[in-house]
C-alpha cells in the first residue's frame, strides 16, 4: 500500500464502513424520470454489480456519482463527505474513478500520457512519482508494451483497458466500471475480469454496470437491478437473478432461464 500526498483530504474509514451513500437521488431528462428517489449504500471494499435494461438509468446513476451530471434532488455522500455539489474533477481527487461505456481516450496523447494526466491531477502526485504510478497502472492493466502508442490508434479492447487504467491512475477508493466488458470477445472479457478480480482482492471498492452477466455474477458480492429509475432488487447475485420481477423486466425470459447463474460463456442481452 502506498501512502501519497493528496490534494484533498480523504477521510479514512474503518474497513467495512460505508464509502458511498445515495439518498433520495432523483433525475429527470425532460419527461423521462431516470432516477426516482434512489437509495444506495456501498460499503468500503465491497464489489457491487448493477444490471438493468437499456435506458434504466444506469449510466446516469454513475454520472451523478462521478459528478458529470447533477441530480435534481437528493444527497450523495462519499467517504463521509457530502459531495452532491462538487464537480467531477474534485470528486476524482477525492477518490471517485470512473470509466465511460463508450471509451473517451485523449486520442492525440499516448497511452502513457493518458494515464499520467490522471496520476498528476486525480491522484495529485508530482514528478517522477506520477510517472511511476502511471507506469505501474499500465503494467497492471497490460498496457505497458504499448505505452507510447497514440490512444487514437487503439483497438476496442485496448481502449476499454485504457479507460480502466486512467481511472486507476487517479488512485481511486471507488471504481465505477461502466460496461467495460461490452463488445469484447470471451477471452478478452476473461482477461479484463482477471484484472478486476485482482483489484477487488486488493481491497478496492467497485461498482460495476455490466450486461455480460455471467462474468459480473462471479465478480461481485452484491447485485442490484435497476429498472425505470429505481432499484427493483438488491441481494446476492444468485438471489437477484432468481427474482421473478428481475427476470420479467431485465432477462425478459420465463422461469426456465437459469443458465445465467454462474458458468456459460453466452452474453445475456436485455
Amino acid at each position: 500500500m502506498s501512502s501519497r500526498e493528496r490534494p484533498l483530504d480523504r477521510t479514512t474509514d474503518a474497513p467495512g464502513a460505508e464509502l458511498l451513500s445515495l439518498t433520495g437521488i432523483s433525475k429527470r431528462f425532460g419527461k423521462v424520470l431516470v432516477a426516482d428517489r434512489l437509495q444506495l449504500r456501498v460499503g468500503d471494499g465491497e464489489a457491487v454489480g448493477i444490471v438493468g435494461p437499456n435506458g434504466a438509468g444506469k449510466t446516469t446513476l454513475f454520472s451523478m456519482v462521478s459528478g458529470d451530471v447533477a441530480p435534481d434532488d437528493g444527497e450523495i455522500v462519499f467517504g463521509g463527505r457530502t459531495v452532491t455539489r462538487l464537480g467531477a474533477a474534485a470528486r476524482c481527487r477525492l477518490g471517485v474513478g470512473r470509466t465511460y461505456q463508450v471509451p473517451r481516450p485523449f486520442e492525440n496523447m499516448t497511452v502513457f500520457e493518458n494515464v499520467l494526466v490522471a496520476a498528476q491531477y486525480g491522484a495529485g502526485v508530482r514528478g517522477r512519482a506520477a510517472a511511476d504510478l502511471a507506469l505501474a497502472v499500465l503494467d497492471q492493466t497490460g498496457l505497458l508494451p504499448i505505452a507510447n502508442r497514440h490512444a487514437g490508434a487503439l483497438t476496442l479492447l485496448q481502449r476499454k483497458r485504457l479507460e480502466l487504467a486512467r481511472a486507476l491512475g487517479g488512485q481511486p477508493r471507488l471504481l465505477l466500471l461502466d460496461e467495460v466488458a461490452g463488445g469484447l470477445t470471451d477471452p478478452e472479457v476473461e482477461e479484463l475480469a482477471g484484472i478486476i478480480a485482482a483489484l477487488r482482492a486488493s481491497g478496492l471498492t467497485i461498482v460495476w454496470i455490466e450486461h455480460v452477466v455471467h462474468v459480473l455474477v462471479r465478480s461481485v458480492d452484491r447485485l442490484l437491478c435497476l429498472a425505470g429509475g429505481a432499484f427493483i432488487a438488491d441481494g446476492s447475485p444468485e438471489e437477484v437473478l432468481r427474482d421473478d420481477t428481475v427476470r420479467e423486466v431485465y432477462l425478459g425470459g420465463g422461469p426456465e432461464l437459469t443458465a445465467v447463474d454462474t458458468a456459460g460463456p453466452g452474453e445475456v442481452a436485455p
Binding site: S66, D68, G87, A89, C92, R93, R104, P105, V117, G124
Partner: peptide, 8 residues
C-alpha cells in the same frame, strides 16, 4: 469531459 473525470 474525460479530462474533468481524470481530476483536471
Amino acid at each position: 469531459t474525460a479530462a474533468r473525470s481524470a481530476g483536471v
